[in-house]
Design a protein around this nucleic acid. Structure first.
Lengths: 118, 118
DNA sequence: GATATATTTACTACAATGTAGATTAAATGG
DNA sequence: CCATTTAATCTACATTGTAGTAAATATATC
């Protein structure tokens, strides 16, 4: 076993969302944030399933919030990234950066498709 | 359907390896490159399966090389990244960068674990 | 205070990706 | 030709990604 396993891309993204949202990181906020910043629209189910898995793996920790909702609704579950989660994120970032090394420029000029070819 | 689907992290990495290796991008080279640059060791099977899928999705294109091996051995299959592949890579990079935005610094100071807690 | 309604999480099932071990293919050297 | 080397394919299963539906729980209303 490689011991330090890699995390999936969506998992990475959700960890980052939680970090960014700080004290306001719960389900629907996270979902909106992801859609807004990364143009990635998840269904409710997809979101919570992944959040749950991250918690089980110890990369996120969740605690139920008080019943302080303005309107109605069930209690929110607030998430925060654990030390292990931060480490996982950092490793993924490093790996990707190594592979992108010196490649950014060669990529852009090739973007000439996108529909109309004539 | 969201039309522009996201690719997995390993898929990203393999596409990047192929770009980096240019005219020398075939199985075992890619595998070595990945292990070297990103500390990610794949089994032979894991590698080729993913390469094959990328080809099927049109993100990679492969062509069999001549029988120019120095020693013995089967013909190599050389890969190159298609325009669609470059586009997919670019999108993933953009999304991740958006989410990392302004976060890099807050991460480093937290790296104090790693074994001894006392 | 019973019930409609809003907000949020949990459950269930399936598709796509990630992973590896064993096998096959094809070339060279003796 | 047979052992050896190099490389790719096959088969099977684990992990992640995804979504639809249901359940929980608060407020509003009459």
């Amino acid at each position: 076993m490689t011991q330090d396993k890699f995390i999936g891309e969506l998992e990475q993204m959700l960890l980052l969302c939680v970090l960014q949202l700080k004290d306001d990181a719960y389900g629907s906020q996270i979902r909106s944030f992801l859609a807004d910043k990364a143009q990635r629209d998840l269904s409710i189910g997809a979101l919570y399933t992944t959040l749950e898995r991250l918690e089980q793996k110890g990369l996120l920790s969740g605690r139920l919030g008080e019943a302080t909702a303005e309107r109605g609704g069930r209690a929110k579950k607030y998430y925060s990234v654990t030390g292990e989660g931060r480490q996982a994120l950092f490793r993924s970032k490093e790996a990707l950066e190594q592979l992108w090394q010196g490649l950014a420029l060669q990529l852009a000029p090739q973007f000439d498709q996108g529909g109309c070819t004539r």
